[in-house]
């Protein structure tokens, strides 16, 4: 009889603890609200560090919702003028020197962007977390001296690049301060951290993000620094067409 009471008590305690955690999907929605906007114009720097070199790539990008994105490379000289267009699940890149527009698809999506720790697939998948994963809050931890909810994401389909992910979401600012990307086997593949944040356009927003491909021993990580960001700006529809790539 005593044992039965003890088990009931334990179960109740566990339920109370879980009930105390907010719903994972709600947290993801709040995070999306902070990170996304109808339209966005951003200037950024990507610093790619390997055992041998360090390179900085500057880009300007325009996004509209989850489906449209246009990026133009500003520096270094060799990359200047290269453009990239994303419409839904399709991705194209244009090289002004070769005057060719190439569709990036299939295995090319898994390749690294400019030798960084990010792949084209990573870039495409970050915007659809709510559609691709179930989210469950499993705990709370402190990251960079900020109290965070720990959320576990489980892929809804087999074709998702990372079957499970973990996110540490700031309890106050709803920014994902840390992310971990896992393979089906449970092996850690990539890690992301927001190392610096800024207040802009009336919201908290990442200033500096650091990505690390854990499997790439040659890499020392990629820093993504946002120089400026504007929300809900007017972007001509023409910008998100293939014709704009050659302009």
């Amino acid at each position: 009889m005593k044992a039965k009471k003890l088990i009931t008590l334990l179960l109740c305690s566990v339920m109370i603890v879980f009930a105390a955690y907010p719903d994972g999907r709600e947290l993801i929605k709040k995070m999306d609200k902070i990170m996304a906007s109808d339209t966005q114009k951003m200037t950024s720097k990507m610093i790619i560090s390997t055992n041998r070199t360090s390179r900085t790539i500057e880009t300007r990008s325009y996004t509209k919702g989850e489906d449209y994105s246009f990026t133009e490379y500003l520096a270094p000289a060799r990359e200047e003028g290269i453009k990239m267009l994303k419409i839904g699940d399709d991705l194209w890149t244009y090289d002004p020197d070769a005057d060719r527009t190439i569709s990036i698809s299939g295995h090319m999506l898994r390749q690294s962007i400019n030798g960084s720790d990010l792949s084209y697939e990573d870039m495409m998948s970050d915007e659809t977390i709510n559609e691709d994963y179930t989210a469950k809050t499993v705990g709370e931890e402190v990251v960079f001296e900020r109290s965070c909810w720990l959320i576990e994401l489980t892929a809804l389909r087999a074709d998702i690049a990372y079957p499970t992910r973990k996110l540490w979401i700031d309890k106050e600012r709803y920014l994902p301060l840390r992310g971990e990307y896992y393979a089906k086997s449970g092996k850690l593949l990539k890690r992301m951290e927001i190392r610096q944040v800024m207040q802009t356009g009336g919201r908290w927003f990442p200033k500096e993000m650091h990505y690390q491909d854990v499997l790439n021993k040659k890499s020392q990580g990629t820093s993504f620094i946002i120089e400026s960001v504007e929300f809900d700006v007017d972007i001509p529809t023409y910008m998100f067409t293939k014709a704009a790539l050659k302009k």
């Binding site: 690294s112 400019n114 030798g115």
Partner: peptide
């Protein structure tokens, strides 16, 4: 013939 590959530094290259 356009080569689509990666430069020594990992950037995508499109070269005719």
């Amino acid at each position: 013939a356009t080569l689509v590959g990666a430069t020594m530094y990992g950037s995508m290259t499109i070269h005719n």
